[in-house]
Design a protein around this nucleic acid. Structure first.
Length: 781
DNA sequence: TTCTTACTGATTTTT
DNA sequence: TCAGTAAGAA
């Protein structure tokens, strides 16, 4: 607690205030009027509504520097929270650059989670934890939940532990302890959710462990129950800055409101139009409600955009204007016209990938009067990660270098987690979850039965699993190969533990010894799967990462929170990522494929959250378009293979929301008569003329897409307009041979409305809904 | 115990 | 389609 000598701190601050009050502030000259207003409104609540590309980070960091420079607070009296480590790093860097020195003394600039860990370690005893508690990763969490579920005699096939994890996470995001879960949630997880939640928390306490959600939850509980503690921090954190406020969940919101409760010097920065994490517990309401929560708040809108061309901004603006209850912002730019947003429809997903691949290749050299773009300047942003595959396949074929952003992060990889579990066991042999993870990795002939014996022995003796295993061996409760291997493991752990205490041995050597002697490295060396070499490579990298730390313990502590690893791959590559992963990034040229109803907006989002879901999807569209600086290309396909089944697709409703004046409709090559979206470009086919007559921004155009995308007998999906269902029905005739996904081939006996009576070759006579059958000879491709 | 084969069911994922 | 799991076979 040495850094918490308050009297010293306050005196220092006032002295500093007097000494620095007259300091010039040249950095203010670099700001536009709105940014400047946001920076200079230092006291009281401030809401900075920062649209995409409006210099939000600049304003935020300048404000921080201004707080320091005017002597209002010392570096350790400012609480600045971000969501990602990356954002925190960026802020530190930029503050340092503005100050002309590195900022060592900003201990409270970090993610919600990393700050909460610091706080919770100081006050762990208030929630019955020891200050050296461990932070579980999701694998540990899941294993623990699985045990509880099985112990409760629940069929974990019908009720997967994963689902329980989701429910608990959701509750924690809302700052509900087991006692506070409202009655309305009682039916969660087969009605046993709350009870299991309680057991889970109990078990965590026994293990002296917390999960990610607990970090926030425990701190909120502490602040609510211990006014003295809260007051202490309210005084200490004289100013609070919050980035990405639209992404805060209820727990984070409460945490902030408690901390800001005294002086209300809180500045929240965010953009309600970029709230895309509702499904993870984020509450757009937090930002919409700010002025009510903090009456008299200064609200500043940053609307001048420094990123995109006016066409791109107009297209994004047109789409987002369909959302209700926005705080309202209109982005503008001083930049000249530039290219319109390009729109193109394709026959199917593969064609779309092929076209984008070719387009990327030709864009490198510059086409249609445009400048050339390097591969690093181009990105493909998809709604769901499975869409990436088509592009990867295609790019591999044509040898186009690409990089996938997102996906499993370094510390989430299996081999890294396994290795870490070994390290954890060396540092703290009582880490049961780590033991469970590696006891049979590599295979030691210790299956379920043997592990159960260890569990029972440990529980009977009230000791950890490692000790339980030792006792079991002594009692000869286990025999054969398993016994020999287990005793080897236990001995190894003891030996490594001693080595850890030996100052003559570096922790890097120790790590190598552990991975070697445990047989873990060997396991991957003997593995013949194609990913094995990569995994060995990762292990080497892990050992290398140890160099930055004093010992294993310090390393483990660090890693539990910093789950990101941006190993900057060399070479120019196109980026492929999800829209979510793209938030906060920008690229000169952006491709947005797969704009089809059901895919984007995603069917599931609409089913689960209705209008709210569509609005969040729309914000995702807005985020996608606003990633583009110079060129944005939106595309869709008429047919797409979904789970191995060909389906016809309707263009996304968001396409109809694009303002016509800012869109160029391109004609895809290789389609007779121009095919889709030939509006305004002439041509001869019926489709083309229809498109010209209606314009693309009309129901007629949509109908055209639907019709053109619809092969005569392929199956429409449930959500489609009734017109199409009728089409599907009328396309069948009695006696026709058809195919059904479940029942196989058969012949139609009778047709009643949308139901068909079919004599299946294998399944006999059945009545099925027409949309579930396909003409037998007409399975596309 | 572990390897093999059949089944099921499927977004987005900052920490 | 395809990955991840669950029951059967060696």
């Amino acid at each position: 607690m040495s850094s918490f000598d308050e009297s010293d701190a306050f005196e220092g601050a006032s002295l500093a205030a007097r000494a620095m009050a007259a300091r010039p502030a040249p950095y203010l000259d670099d700001l536009n009027p709105a940014q400047r207003e946001a920076v200079e409104a230092l006291d009281g609540p401030v809401l900075m509504l920062a649209g995409a590309g409006t210099g939000k980070t600049k304003a935020l960091t300048t404000r921080l520097v201004h707080l320091l420079n005017t002597g209002r607070a010392r570096p350790n009296e400012i609480l600045s929270v971000t969501f990602t480590n990356k954002a925190a790093r960026e802020m530190k860097l930029r503050v340092g650059r503005l100050l002309g020195e590195t900022v060592e003394g900003m201990p409270w600039l970090g993610t919600f989670h990393s700050i909460c860990v610091k706080l919770l370690r100081r006050h762990a005893e208030l929630v019955d934890l020891k200050s050296n508690f461990t932070i579980l990763d999701t694998d540990d969490q899941l294993r623990l939940l699985k045990q509880l579920v099985q112990a409760a005699g629940i069929d974990d096939k019908r009720w997967p532990a994963r689902q329980l994890a989701g429910v608990i996470d959701h509750w924690k995001n809302r700052a509900w302890t087991p006692e506070k879960v409202p009655a309305g949630e009682a039916s969660a997880y087969d009605g046993k959710g709350v009870a299991l939640y309680r057991q889970y928390q109990e078990r965590l306490r026994e293990l002296n462990a917390v999960d990610f959600g607990d970090l926030l939850l425990h701190m909120v509980v502490i602040f609510q129950a211990h006014e003295d503690v809260l007051k202490q921090y309210q005084r200490w954190f004289r100013y609070i800055l919050v980035d990405e406020y639209q992404d805060t969940n209820v727990a984070q919101y409460l945490w902030l409101r408690l901390l800001a409760g005294g002086h209300k010097n809180i500045c929240c920065v965010g953009d309600d139009d970029q709230s895309i994490y509702g499904w993870r517990g984020a509450e757009v309401g937090n930002i919409l409600r700010f002025e009510k929560d903090f009456p008299g708040a200064t609200v500043v809108r940053l609307e001048q955009n420094y990123r995109s061309t006016p066409h791109i901004l107009a297209a994004a603006g047109g789409v987002i204007s369909g959302n209700k209850g926005r705080l309202g912002k209109e982005l503008w730019t001083e930049v000249d016209e530039g290219e319109k947003v390009r729109l193109i429809g394709h026959w199917d997903g593969e064609e779309e990938a092929r076209w984008i691949g070719e387009e990327i290749e030709s864009m490198q050299g510059g086409t249609r009067g445009m400048r050339g773009f390097s591969l690093d300047e181009m990105a493909i942003l998809v709604r769901a990660s499975h869409q990436m595959r088509a592009f990867e396949d295609r790019f591999l074929t044509i040898g186009l270098p690409y990089r996938v952003i997102g996906g499993p992060r370094f510390y989430e990889r299996m081999e890294i987690r396994d290795a870490m579990a070994y390290f954890r066991l060396v540092v703290s042999p009582a880490d049961d979850l780590a033991f469970e993870r590696v006891v049979n990795t590599p295979k030691r002939g210790l299956g379920d039965k043997a592990q159960q014996k260890i569990q029972v022995t440990a529980r009977q003796n009230g000791v950890s699993l490692v000790e339980g295993a030792a006792i079991l061996l002594e009692e000869k409760g286990i025999s054969g190969k398993g016994a020999a291997e287990l005793s080897k493991l236990i001995e190894g752990l003891r030996r490594w533990g001693r080595m850890a205490g030996d100052p003559s041995m570096s922790h890097i050597e120790l790590a190598e010894v552990v991975l070697d002697e445990s047989g873990y490295t060997e396991m991957w060396q003997n593995d013949k799967t194609p990913e094995a070499p990569g995994r060995l490579e990762n292990l080497k990298e892990l050992v290398k990462a140890l160099e930055g730390f004093e010992n294993l313990q310090g390393f483990l502590e660090h890693v539990s929170l910093i789950m990101d690893n941006e190993s900057e791959e060399q070479g120019e590559k196109v980026s492929i990522m999800t829209l979510h992963a793209a938030k906060g990034l920008e690229f000169p040229a952006v491709f947005l494929p797969g704009w089809e109803d059901g895919l984007f907006p995603s069917q599931r989002s609409m089913d689960e959250s209705g209008l709210k879901g569509v609005e969040e999807e729309r914000r995702l569209a807005y985020v996608g378009i606003t990633r583009a600086e110079e060129l944005c290309t939106i595309s869709f396909a008429g047919n797409r293979r979904v789970y191995g089944q060909w389906q016809s697709q309707m263009p996304s409703r968001f396409i109809d929301e694009l303002p016509e004046d800012h869109v160029d409709v391109l004609t895809p090559p290789g389609l007779y008569g121009g095919g889709y979206g030939a509006a305004g470009l002439g041509g001869s086919g019926i489709e083309t003329r229809a498109a010209e007559a209606d314009g693309y921004n009309s129901p007629g155009w949509r109908r055209l897409q639907a019709r053109a995308g619809q092969r005569p007998l392929s199956q429409p999906r449930e959500s489609k307009a009734s017109v199409i269902d009728a089409q599907a029905v009328s396309s069948h005739t009695v006696g026709e041979r058809v195919f059904h996904q479940k029942f196989g081939y058969g012949a139609i006996i009778a047709i009643e409305g949308d139901k068909l009576e079919i004599d299946f070759e294998k399944a006999g006579v059945k009545k099925v809904v027409a949309k579930f059958v396909t003409g037998a000879d007409d399975i596309p491709f």
